[in-house]
Structure formats: structure tokens, C-alpha cells
């Protein structure tokens, strides 16, 4: 019984960690890849063109 509970709890924290990592990735991509502030645009210009993300 105890073992099952432990496994379930561990699996839950694992899923939360995975969700956190996915969210980190999404945030970085959204800010770096798709947000369109002028400063960001100038920094990112060449790489954005290189990976084919819409730029301007």
C-alpha cells in the first residue's frame, strides 16, 4: 500500500517537473521567437531569418 502511494506521488511530482520544463521552453520560444519588440528584433534578426521564423 505504502509503495503504491509513494510511486503515485513520485509520478505526480515528475509530471509537474515535466510540465514546468515544457512551460520554460514555450516561454523562451515565445519571447525569443515570436514577440516583436524592436530591440528583440534587431538582436534576433539574423537567426530568425536563418531558422525561418517570420521576422518582418
Amino acid at each position: 500500500m505504502t509503495t503504491t502511494t509513494h510511486t503515485a506521488v513520485k509520478s505526480d511530482t515528475n509530471l509537474i517537473s515535466i510540465a514546468f520544463a515544457a512551460f520554460m521552453g514555450l516561454s523562451i520560444l515565445f519571447i525569443a521567437g515570436f514577440a516583436s519588440s524592436a530591440t528583440l528584433h534587431n538582436t534576433a534578426h539574423d537567426m530568425r531569418h536563418a531558422i525561418g521564423f517570420a521576422c518582418h
Binding site: 520544463a21 520554460m24 521552453g25 514555450l26 523562451i28 520560444l29 525569443a32 521567437g33
Partner: peptide, 9 residues
């Protein structure tokens, strides 16, 4: 930066 973003996913 962008590849670290890809890597997280």
C-alpha cells in the same frame, strides 16, 4: 537562447 528553448521542450 532559442535552442535552449527547443531543448526544454
Amino acid at each position: 537562447t532559442i535552442y535552449i528553448g527547443f531543448a526544454f521542450m
